[in-house]
């Protein structure tokens, strides 16, 4: 049951309310995380959690929320266009290290898709749910696109991408101390290919070199997955 006050709300007012709330919680979460960098306060986790609490308290539905704040998703389009800039700015790195970058992306992507499929099957998950899990290691705009192409549910994929980001950032720290890797190339690659944007944010904290490698790889690995999925969808 939608809240009586909310369902009588003017649509423009509802849009203003849910949009302002989303932006306010996002800015608040960013500020809190800057002050206390604990993983539970990651804006990636905290912003949706706060919004879910408000939606539930107001007895609103996902539909009500989407009517109000769904327009923000449109901005993923121009954001994807913006990914051209880090690719261009890191062209020297691509020219120098392309075989290593390519090996890492292909091996990482095959592992992501293969282990998701295998573990999901072992645990009895199947159908659209299993398909929605496959692209969870790449950045959201790419992952939602891949999910669409292979017959998953893009919104579910967005949820799984966020979970991968939150836990991947924590796992990344553990793996980097535990794994016998020393090169900044490998450290950046682990974080970007394992945990997309959240991993890239961690890589930026490790160092400038790790950060730029991660920023580039996060985009390239997403692009690689989208192009392969598009090709598969076109052939099918």
């Amino acid at each position: 049951m939608p809240h009586p006050m909310l369902s009588t709300l003017d649509p423009w007012l509802a849009t203003a309310f849910w949009s302002a709330l989303t932006i306010a919680f996002y800015l608040l979460a960013k500020r809190l995380y800057r002050r206390w960098p604990h993983w539970l306060l990651m804006p990636l986790a905290l912003t949706p959690a706060l919004l879910i609490v408000v939606v539930l308290l107001m007895h609103a539905s996902y539909g009500d929320y989407m009517h109000g704040a769904g327009w923000l998703l449109t901005l993923l389009g121009p954001a994807t266009v913006a990914f051209a800039v880090p690719i261009y700015e890191q062209r020297a790195l691509i020219r120098r290290e392309w075989p290593v970058l390519a090996f890492g992306m292909v091996a990482g992507s095959l592992t992501a898709i293969g282990t998701s499929w295998l573990l999901a099957t072992l645990l009895g998950l199947n159908g659209a749910l299993r398909l929605s899990l496959l692209p969870r290691s790449i950045s959201t705009p790419f992952a939602m696109q891949v999910s669409q192409d292979i017959g998953g549910v893009p919104n579910l994929t967005a949820v799984f991408v966020v979970l991968t980001g939150v836990f991947g950032a924590v796992l990344g720290d553990m793996m980097l101390t535990w794994l016998p890797i020393r090169s900044s190339l490998a450290r950046g690659a682990v974080l970007a290919i394992g945990a997309h944007g959240a991993g890239t944010a961690r890589a930026n904290q490790l160092g400038v070199e790790e950060g730029s490698i991660a920023g580039l790889l996060m985009v390239l690995v997403g692009l690689l997955n989208v192009l392969v999925a598009t090709l598969l969808a076109a052939l099918a």
Partner: peptide, 13 residues
């Protein structure tokens, strides 16, 4: 970027 995909994440509801 995160701000733009938050609405999709609320699909958990």
């Amino acid at each position: 970027l995160l701000l733009f995909f938050i609405p999709a994440v609320l699909a958990v509801l």
